[in-house]
């Protein structure tokens, strides 16, 4: 799905990522890498699989778009405990397969505690407020005078009510007047139901498609 924002064309991918073709840049929020591993370290036995699945989706995004750069909008690593051997090996392997792609991490609240990724991964770590073109890169969705903010953090979702008490809760892209919030990219991440206001645009990623949800005026 293509939209125009701040004079730029952007693609909304059903993989829950945002792509900016002019700069060949892929934006991904809240991947929460190693979240499952940190649960395990706390004695909660979750099965493996979600890390590989997230990386596979990331690979698909790159293949489909030909992205040259990925910007992680915060919460790349879930916690200190996420720095577990298998998780790290898997990402290192993935990184070596995509060595030509530049990666930037805008540090989020989880990254502050988890620490920056290993230098060997060649990830450029920056704080919130970095500007490219009309966009201001952040993790927390707060308006910024320096540009239209691309952010994550809240894992937005929207409730849809259908007939016969049918209801759905779907992760969504949420575009406000000054800030866009991306859905959480990670597999094992919860969602927070948002209440968009008139004038906002909301898109859900469901069943391999991106669908716009009309927000009542």
């Amino acid at each position: 799905m293509k939209i125009e924002l701040a004079g730029e064309e952007l693609w909304l991918l059903p993989e829950k990522a945002l792509y900016w073709p002019r700069e060949k840049t892929l934006f991904v929020a809240d991947i929460h890498f190693g979240k499952v591993a940190s649960f395990r370290a706390a004695g909660i036995p979750l099965p493996p699989g979600s890390t590989s699945a997230a990386l596979a989706r990331l690979t698909r995004c790159i293949a489909q778009t030909g992205a040259r750069r990925i910007v992680f909008l915060g919460d790349f690593l879930h916690s200190k405990e996420a720095r577990a051997a298998q998780t790290f090996e898997r990402f290192a392997e993935w990184r070596s397969q995509h060595a030509g792609v530049a990666i930037t991490l805008v540090r989020g609240n989880h990254d502050d505690k988890a620490g920056d990724p290993p230098a060997a991964w060649n990830i450029d770590c920056v704080d919130e407020g970095e500007v490219i073109g009309p966009f201001c890169l952040a993790h927390h969705p707060e308006p910024d005078l320096r540009g239209y903010v691309l952010a994550g953090h809240i894992h937005p979702a929207i409730y849809l009510d259908g007939p016969a008490n049918d209801s759905l809760r779907l992760a969504c892209f949420w575009f406000g007047a000054y800030v866009c919030v991306l859905p959480a990219f990670g597999e094992f991440t919860g969602t927070y139901a948002v209440k968009p206001q008139a004038g906002d645009r909301v898109f859900v990623a469901a069943d391999g498609e991106v669908i716009e949800i009309r927000v009542p005026a």
Binding site: R40, P45, Q86
Partner: peptide, 18 residues
């Protein structure tokens, strides 16, 4: 097995410990 190794699926994951 579930409380010791987190079940069959987690055999190779030493970070799991309970």
């Amino acid at each position: 097995e579930f409380v010791v190794r987190g079940g069959e699926a987690l055999k190779a994951y030493p970070e799991y410990r309970k």
